[in-house]
Simulated assay, not measured.
Amino acid sequence: MEAKEEEEAKAMQRGQADIWKYMFSFVDSMALRCAVELCIADIIHSHGGPITLSQIVSNIPDSTSPDINCLARIMRLLVRRNIFTAQHDQSDGGETLYGLTHSSKWILHDSDLTLAPMFVLETHPWLMSPWHCFSQCVKEGGIAFKKAHGREIWDFGSRNSEFNKLFNDGMECISRILMRTIVSEYKDGFNHVGSLVDVGGGTGATISEIVKSYPHIKGINFDLPHVTVTAPSYPGVSHVGGDMFQGVPSGDALFLKLIMHDWSDEDCVKILKNCKKAIPEKGGKIIVVEVVLEAQGDELLDEIGLAFDLHMIAHSSGGKERTEMEWKRILNEGGFPSYKIIKIPTLLSIIEAYPQ
């Protein structure tokens, strides 16, 4: 009996530790946001190797009266989380030298492959506040973002230029990362496409990467007017403003990356029906790049898929991540009864679907 009671006590202690861990899990995000805002990884990178806290502080932009002790405590946690390295330097007065890891290389602002803008976006108070509305959503339904801000995210962005830029910067950095993988892994998929419409393509970074690798493609970037009006010019790409619920520009194929998960099943079916009208009945296709949820999966990024699903509750207008069976159902209802899933080495998969 004593052994059983002892095991129960240990289990309760582990349970308490878990709750404490989840209670303060936001601390990791906020500490890392601080490092991103202060460009700490960039400062270390610019020196070509590990440096001291004093060297870091002296290079922080617009730093008037820096608190080096505060930074030391933040860095101590980030070292524990393997964001940075720390080593004692015997040759430099015994100071600790801080260096980069494979993780902190992903928050370099000047890198082509950076998650820094996305991290700043996702941890901004505008996007954090809807998470506090989850219990309301459970009790009374509704959209978390609208509960927090009085309007849905797309309407909010159209009225707030600062948020619109923050959002577009975050989406562009994700596009660059994903497109490098997609272009290399989906080679045959673009070979026979003459014109490609990127539905919900933001400011055009995604379609420009495709056209750059496949210059025979006529690229059309399609998004809401307040988004395309700020879009830069790209060779081989034209920008078209509009509403995908009203209609989609015609093309040989349509590209939808991280679009469908923003919407409910009913809305997705509406989008798909408009997509079907925009492509040839024979030879046309849509290329959907999304999470295919594996609720019990044990791959490296499967748990992130579950987190993305809750992210949709927080920020979308009724969207969600979907399993293959859920994708099959909405594709069929939208007029695309035939499809295949192509796994690529990212969180996302490519779903190629055809109208017949």
Rank of each mutant, 00 (worst) to 15 (best):
V288N: 13
V289D: 02
I210Q: 02
I210P: 06
L53Y: 03
I74V: 13
L224M: 10
I143G: 10
Q90S: 15
G318V: 01
I344P: 03
G15A: 01
H109Q: 09
W131L: 10
G142Q: 00
T203V: 11
G297T: 05
Q90N: 13
E321F: 00
G236Q: 09
G142F: 06
G170L: 03
F24D: 06
T206R: 11
H226T: 09
P232N: 08
G201N: 05
H132F: 12
A253G: 12
G219V: 05
G335L: 04
S65V: 14
I210G: 05
E299Y: 10
D92H: 11
N168E: 14
Q296R: 12
F119M: 07
V288E: 07
A41D: 04
D267R: 14
H88T: 10
R329M: 11
H149R: 04
A11P: 04
G201H: 05
F255V: 04
T96N: 08
V240A: 09
L331F: 03
A11Q: 13
C137I: 13
D262I: 05
L115C: 09
D309V: 03
A31R: 08
F163K: 09
L97G: 00
F308M: 14
E290N: 04
T206S: 15
S213I: 05
E185S: 14
I51G: 04
Y186I: 10
G236E: 09
I83F: 04
S111I: 00
L306W: 01
N59V: 02
V248R: 07
K285D: 08
G189E: 09
S91E: 13
G157D: 11
I182V: 15
Q16A: 15
P337M: 00
G202A: 03
E290I: 06
N274S: 04
I43G: 03
L256Y: 09
C268H: 03
F84I: 00
S250W: 06
P61A: 07
E140W: 11
S213A: 15
F26T: 10
D169M: 06
S317M: 12
F145I: 02
S161L: 11
S65Q: 12
N274E: 07
G93A: 02
R73T: 01
W263K: 06
S63M: 05
A314P: 02
P280A: 08
C137M: 15
E324Y: 06
V197E: 06
I83N: 02
L121A: 11
I44K: 00
I259G: 10
